[in-house]
Nucleic acid binder design. Structure first.
Ligand SMILES: [Mn+2]
Ligand SMILES: [Mn+2]
Ligand SMILES: [Zn+2]
Ligand SMILES: [Zn+2]
Lengths: 127, 127
DNA sequence: AAATTAACGCAACTTAGTTGCAAAAATAAT
DNA sequence: ATTATTTTTGCAACTAAGTTGCGTTAATTT
């Protein structure tokens, strides 16, 4: 299902992604908008935005769903197989616009990879 | 909490890991032993085995917990930061004893990585 | 055999995510 | 501008994974 109408709710969520560079967990988004919209709505808007190639999703280290803005994706053509970074101190999650070469393993046919790097972000190193 | 007693239940779960090379999801284990032990027991035994360095855990692509036998780990000294492989066709998950060099990113301090490769396993390619 | 400790079962709970359906809002048709 | 159609939303109920508290059982010590 694609986006038929750009509603107030959709624009609210969209603007969050446009204003900050980091990824957002669905849990945080549901919480952030808990006074404005139902959690089902949040899930459905994220689904629509992903189908449109506006945002992409991935699974964080604790198994939660995360979303982040896409850079060069279009409808049904996601090409963001980039690694992600998670700060162990502040919990921040970021997309890494960085090519990691996926090794080909004996006898297997590998076509994608989810790579999550963990450590300290720039801000947290200083502290 | 470490292992104080090697019970029947613990040995049953342990032997599963010793008999097959692949990783196992907790969901599958709970199901496999549903007639023999409570799911809480399964979770707790896995926790103990992990603390002992007998098995290690990781999060699969759907956010589920997976466990696999450790190769060279000891109590509180896990060094299995290896990538994992998930077959999109049959669902099999395997540890890859393979070094992937973790890139150092500008300003960040990266100390670990979860890498999940996806594709077709050797068996499923043939079909 | 009695006391202590570790492991287990069970039920109840939490949290993330999903589904069905009716109501509301937006768009299109008349 | 009404009316009809379609899309979006809220709500409540549900599923599934994982956790917690507590009383009971089982293993180990004394
Ligand atoms: Mn990303
Ligand atoms: Mn492994
Ligand atoms: Zn940080
Ligand atoms: Zn396979």
């Amino acid at each position: 299902m694609s986006i038929k109408r750009k509603t107030k709710s959709l624009n609210a969520i969209l603007s969050v992604f446009e204003q900050r560079e980091e990824a957002l967990s669905v849990v945080d988004l549901v919480d952030e908008f808990k006074d404005d919209m139902n959690k089902t709505t949040v899930y459905r808007i994220l689904e629509r935005l992903e189908n449109e190639g506006v945002i992409h999703s991935f699974t964080g280290s604790k198994g939660l769903m995360w979303y982040a803005k896409c850079q060069t994706c279009t409808t049904h053509h996601h090409h963001d197989v980039h690694p992600h970074f998670e700060c162990k101190d502040c919990g921040k999650v970021e997309c890494l616009e960085l090519e990691i070469e996926i090794p080909q393993i004996n006898n297997r046919h590998i076509d994608s990879a989810s790579i999550m790097l963990q450590g300290q972000c720039a801000d947290c190193i200083k502290k």
